[in-house]
Design a protein around this nucleic acid. Structure first.
Lengths: 212, 212
DNA sequence: GGCCAATATTTAACGTCGTTAACTTGCAGA
DNA sequence: TCTGCAAGTTAACGACGTTAAATATTGGCC
């Protein structure tokens, strides 16, 4: 009776073996050199075997990214409830950029290459959920009158764009290829601070009108 | 006598014919589908002929990008001298993003793919010059005490990161692939304004100490 | 135990790509 | 006229993602 379950389990193990080999190659060599043939060689199978578990190469990479981004998202979501929304935004930005710089190939595939698959759109997508989280924290800050007038959705997108720009440049250009004036962590911090400063209400101590 | 010159001229014409065919393919089909074989077909030559004029595919694309970015840079540099540095920064940002969105494939190759060739580093590179221009205008703003304390070089890089992030996201994701809350031009404008706001001195009307 | 069907895996191949070596052709200079 | 270089072509290599067809493996059923 348990045979069907065992078969399914073995199938999942095979899937995971493929994903692990793919991750290793993706992380160490990048997307282009992560080859179906080399994945197969690593797990001692034939390239075509992979196609019985994944539709194509991008399906492999996308599954991988979802798995690994999912871990980031869990870490973000089970953080402390945002007592201070501004501090929460800062922490969110730093966690996001940190993950991106630690997983450049993942990040590149998810956010820097034209998506053949329309990810990001569905609610289950970790990228979508991460942005939803950002939007939510920005909304909380707005509700407390901490932000200048404007749409929280737009603010969230502006913040995301700034973070993305910084990590994208750092991922794309080697340190010796462009004069990154401050070292990477300082640049990131400056981007976060500048983005927040651009969003915050003017530091006048009297908030205009507490709503509701 | 003039034969050497004629040969050289014909050589340059051939080079330009290759570049034009390559540009057409790059713009309409993207980097991946811009193929040496298809370039050759377009100009009615054999693929190998191209290698007598360019080292490899990336040499073709890089030359193309330098040509076309060069035009942007000329436009930027011969703009009016920056009476108001802040207005100049705004104009610079809008021109940069406009060019990027009008030449997505160029932009992607120059700033979103790992450079096998170490461009950006040399002074002659248009990308480098564009950044130098940005840095210069930021420096002018700083000298007039318009900015909050901090390194102008860092500010320039923060601004660049924000602009880059916005256009990179817009280039990567189709409009229907992610909920871009404001339409693209408004998002760009918000990014520029937010970046400036994050850089400016607090809007108190009395500047602390006019220097010199 | 022995057949059947489904599932897992491999073999072989297709068409594409960037690139290179070796060959042919045409033409300027001595 | 001969020589030599440069432009261009032919043919091929090795790699890639992917597919169709053949083969091995395995569990369910009589």
């Amino acid at each position: 009776m348990g045979t069907a379950e065992r078969r399914e389990r073995e199938r999942q193990e095979m899937r995971q073996r493929i994903l692990d080999a793919a991750r290793e190659l993706l992380v160490t060599e990048g997307y282009e050199r992560m080859t179906m043939r080399r994945i197969a060689e690593a797990i001692e199978y034939t390239p075509t075997a992979i196609y019985h578990h994944f539709q194509d190469k991008d399906d492999v990479v996308l599954t991988l990214c979802h798995q690994d981004f999912g871990r980031l998202l869990e870490a973000l979501q089970q953080g402390p409830p945002p007592a201070d929304p501004i501090a929460a935004l800062r922490a969110l930005g730093l966690a996001y950029t940190r993950f991106a710089l630690e997983h450049p190939a993942h990040y590149r595939f998810m956010f820097m290459t034209a998506p053949k698959v329309k990810h990001l759109l569905t609610d289950g997508d970790p990228g979508y959920q991460a942005f939803a989280l950002l939007r939510q924290v920005v909304g909380a800050a707005a509700e407390r009158g901490l932000l200048r007038p404007g749409s929280p959705d737009t603010f969230a997108q502006v913040l995301w764009a700034a973070l993305h720009g910084a990590v994208a440049l750092l991922i794309t250009f080697e340190a010796d290829c462009f004069p990154v004036v401050p070292p990477a962590p300082d640049l990131i911090e400056q981007v976060v601070e500048t983005g927040l400063r651009g969003i915050l209400a003017t530091p006048k101590p009297e908030p205009p009108a507490p709503r509701s």
